[in-house]
Design a protein around this nucleic acid. Structure first.
Lengths: 169, 169
DNA sequence: ACAAGGAGGTTTGAATTTGAACAACACGTA
DNA sequence: TACGTGTTGTTCAAATTCAAACCTCCTTGT
């Protein structure tokens, strides 16, 4: 193996900063979310993703692809949400084996109630700490990092994955 | 409460990019580290922190402060490391109740063997994906973010809690 | 139509992680 | 010196997370 290319000072600073910011922000938000709405962060993300579709329904597979957790964990989380009545399972009409996670009215309510606090926490922990330029750079750079590490989908063909398709309305 | 200041498009992009990059990088490194050296990421960090001191010894409290995990988890992780002979527990000479985690020769060996692969993975997942400018911005911005979130406990001395920090342009 | 192969979710068993309760000790004060 | 308070690290029960095994069903080739 060739000699290891160790990190120079600024690379080290970036890496450690990334690590610490990552951990602290994650923990901070998780606590805030749990106190505010009794939801874990994955659960909140599931609700957000469901509310992002016109029907409030998403297939488990698509949900697992968007989130970073494993399939089994998704099953667990949806189970927890269903236990609280925030989500309901339905069979996919086109695929019998497919399962749709559907947001209930109560779930939409809980999400609506939790969102302001969450956004405020995100601002306080990350967004409002950054300058405008930094926000842009973060979005572009980290977007690239995340996309590059996305599980290799079959049939993608081109190694190009620069699509900036993060559209949320 | 005043109206919620929702995230605009670029803030949203930064936040989602941060979230996804965070999760994927974390997961990627954890897997790489576990396959390469049989260490979890927290364990690796513990070894790194121990090797960073001249004696290879750090008090549990200081260790817990540097890492982001809880005290109980630190006890567990050090226990795992001790079980493999990579770390040894010693009583602190000045404080009877204090415990020093000491890096063994074998632990130093394992760390030395694991470091190159880890650095390579960090490069592949994050550093080498970024431009020079982006690395600098990341280091500065995320360093600030992490530092700002550092004391999740009672403040030392200054009772300041956000009075002057919120800069709105 | 029927068997082989693959995809979609769930279940299982283990490992990790957390918060709270606990025992032992240091420090300060009367 | 004796007492109350805060610290230090561990233990405990419970929740979360993961990878691998599993079952059901779709799709394809013959």
């Amino acid at each position: 193996m060739a000699e290891t290319r160790w990190l120079d000072e600024r690379e080290m600073a970036a890496w450690q900063g990334f690590l610490e910011a990552t951990s602290r922000v994650s923990r901070h938000l998780e606590q805030q979310l749990k106190e505010d709405a009794g939801l874990s962060h994955p659960q909140y993300e599931i609700l957000v993703r469901l509310s992002g579709t016109p029907d409030g329904e998403v297939r488990m597979t698509d949900l697992a692809e968007g989130l970073v957790t494993s399939k089994s964990n998704l099953t667990y989380q949806v189970g927890q949400l269903e236990k609280r009545g925030l989500v309901r399972r339905r069979s996919c009409p086109t695929d019998v084996r497919g399962v749709l996670a559907a947001l209930t009215d109560e779930g939409r309510d809980v999400l609506r109630a939790a969102a302001p606090g969450h956004v405020a926490a995100v601002r306080e922990a990350l967004i409002d700490v950054l300058e405008r330029d930094e926000i842009d750079v973060l979005a572009r750079a980290l977007g690239r990092v995340g996309a590059r590490l996305r599980p290799p989908r079959q049939g993608t063909g081109s190694a190009d994955s620069g699509g900036s398709g993060t559209s949320s309305s």
